[in-house]
Design a protein around this nucleic acid. Structure first.
Length: 515
RNA sequence: GCUGCUAUAGUGUAGACCGGCCAAUCAUCCCGGCCUUUCACGCCGGGGACUGGGGUUCAAAUCCCCAUAGCAGCACCA
């Protein structure tokens, strides 16, 4: 074939040569080619149908404080609302009395504030029980749902065999009666459930005639007096429609739910939102399961929800991780469908970007040893910058009075070290190790001798400090001036970024962030 | 087991829909060096990946099939 021969001939040319040829023969084609590949989209992918604004929601279950997993859902949705404009709804999904922790109503909102979500409206599902019941009646009357009195086990067997249960044949009129009886408390917990009629042969057994409402008689719900509660798939579908939600971004564990919820939209003739399901996210070394954390706290393994070994937002906030860092990290991860293992290193890097320019620098001497420098000139006051890249912030003063605390790890005997911002000293050998001698002021000499520059504190001008790390406490001394930065993130030089949680006259308490 | 989704460096991500510009992006990480009275920041250099096998095609990270692995769901939880 002629075309074949030509293609072969073109292929023999180098790409550059091909471009040249094309520029001569068909310059407009070349333009098109470069156009297609140059739409470098920054950040998150565009959302279909979002051009005129979106309504999105963050819908946590109030069972405990928010953790990093929640933060991904909350921040991703938030980012799209910010990008396209519209409305962001915080919907508290408290329809399972067994899984409601009353404290969480406030902690969840505090955590949302911390994350700086642009929430426009707050909805409690427990306020809307009447609405769900009303729509349940509608669904029953159009033959889309039925009251099922089968045993759960028995129903499951039928379902797996793609067979309908006997209750499915009952008329809408009768079902309406049964439903009212259900609402009137004529049934006990577990005796009945309202099922949505789906394709009984649906390829995914999880969607076949799923439950929409059920009875929970204990424990009592903290906010409402009721025993009939909707299941998530029912209340979510009703609310998403009634609240005008246009786009939903959630984890892929909801993928089967999307199929179920679609049935409800179809029955009522509603247009479903656009759904996106991102992959599962694990975080190295922590449990993100609220129930497991709760159990750990109850067992005394963790000190509380803000135990720094946990992945809750309160725990990482305590460590001086900023909400901006969480946001940046989470947006970088995006809405990919692949399962990921989120690494602390990536979060730390984002936080360092934010915190490094603002954190004041201080000396903290962990595991201190006292060193006498008998022959050194006394009456010295070392001046160290609060921030090396910003001299305008001023200095800290460290008066030298003949002896210093330095970290035991820096005790190299024999050897020379430089006390940061002060002078050089030489350490003796063996039992003379702790007897240091003055070795000049020259920084150049210290550099030439490859002497490590170590942080120190004067014993007469210092305060005990405990640095709490996830793997245990580190005790030592730090500069008293650290107290001025209580509540803030500072950098302990040569140690890392920490948050000063408490500063009393007797003790500084710091929490470890990262290097 | 069944139903479905996914597979790019240690980690995260771009490229994939529309096959050639990919000897594959960016960040993190690791290793050198420079700068610097911190092991921070900054700068320079280096390291490291298309899960495997077939197929289609002049051409495959990209399309198709199979295998493998991971994950999700299979609740009267969310």
């Amino acid at each position: 074939m002629l075309t074949n021969a030509i293609v072969k001939e073109v292929s023999r040319l180098s790409p550059e040569k091909q471009k040249e040829e094309l520029a001569q023969v068909a310059p407009r084609l070349l333009e098109e080619l470069s156009l297609t590949k140059e739409h470098v989209k920054a950040g998150l992918p565009a959302l279909e149908g979002a051009e005129n604004g979106v309504v999105m929601r963050f819908a946590p279950n109030p069972s405990g404080p928010l953790h990093l997993g929640h933060a991904r859902a909350a921040l991703l949705n938030d980012a799209y609302v910010r990008r396209y404009g519209g409305k962001y709804i915080l919907r508290i999904e408290d329809t399972d009395p067994r899984r409601v922790d009353p404290d969480a109503y406030t902690t969840v909102r505090e955590d949302c504030t911390w994350l700086d979500l642009v929430i426009d409206e707050i909805v409690f599902q427990s306020d809307r029980l009447d609405t769900y019941n009303e729509y349940a009646r509608n669904l029953i009357s159009i033959g889309g749902a039925y009251v099922c009195t089968c045993e759960a086990d028995q129903f499951r067997e039928l379902k797996l065999a793609k067979r309908a249960c006997p209750c499915r044949e009952i008329s809408p009129e009768k079902n309406l009666e049964l439903f009212e009886a259900m609402l009137n408390g004529e049934y006990g917990e577990g005796e009945v459930t309202l099922r949505v009629k789906t394709d009984i042969e649906h390829p995914d057994p999880a969607v076949r005639d799923f439950s929409a409402l059920r009875i929970v008689s204990s424990p009592p719900h903290p906010r409402v007096d009721a025993t009939v509660f909707p299941l998530m798939n029912f209340s979510v579908a009703i609310d998403d429609h009634l609240l005008g939600v246009t786009h939903v971004i959630r984890g892929k564990d909801h993928i089967a739910n999307t199929a179920r919820q679609r049935y409800i939209f179809d029955y009522f003739g509603w247009k479903p939102p656009v759904y996106r399901h991102y992959g599962r996210m694990g975080i190295e070394g922590v449990v993100l399961s609220t129930s497991q954390m709760k159990a750990g706290i109850a067992d005394g393994i963790y000190t509380g929800w803000d135990d720094i070994r946990l992945g809750t937002l309160r725990a990482i906030a305590r460590r001086g991780i900023t909400p901006e860092a969480v946001r940046n990290a989470v947006l970088e991860i995006g809405i990919g469908e692949t399962d990921i293992s989120f690494s602390w290193e990536n979060l730390y890097a984002k936080n360092r970007d934010i915190v490094d320019p603002v954190a004041n620098r201080y000396s903290f001497v962990p595991d201190p040893v006292l060193l006498e420098i008998a022959d050194a000139p006394c009456g010295f006051v070392a001046q160290a910058m609060l921030h090396p890249n910003d001299p305008s912030r001023g200095y800290r003063n460290l008066p030298f009075d003949g002896s210093v605390f330095i970290p035991k790890a820096d005790l190299v005997c024999p050897g020379m070290i430089r006390l940061k911002d002060l002078f050089n000293i030489r350490l003796g050998e063996g039992k003379d190790c702790l007897v240091a001698t003055f070795a000049g002021k020259s920084l150049d000499e210290a550099r030439k001798a490859k002497a490590p520059i170590v942080q120190w504190v004067p014993p007469e001008h210092t305060i005990p400090c405990v640095l709490h790390k996830p793997d245990g406490d580190m005790k030592g001394y730090c500069e008293p001036m650290v107290a001025l930065d209580a509540g803030k993130v500072v950098q302990f030089e040569r140690v890392g970024f920490v948050r000063i949680e408490k500063a009393t006259a007797m003790l500084i308490e710091a929490y470890w962030g990262h290097r």
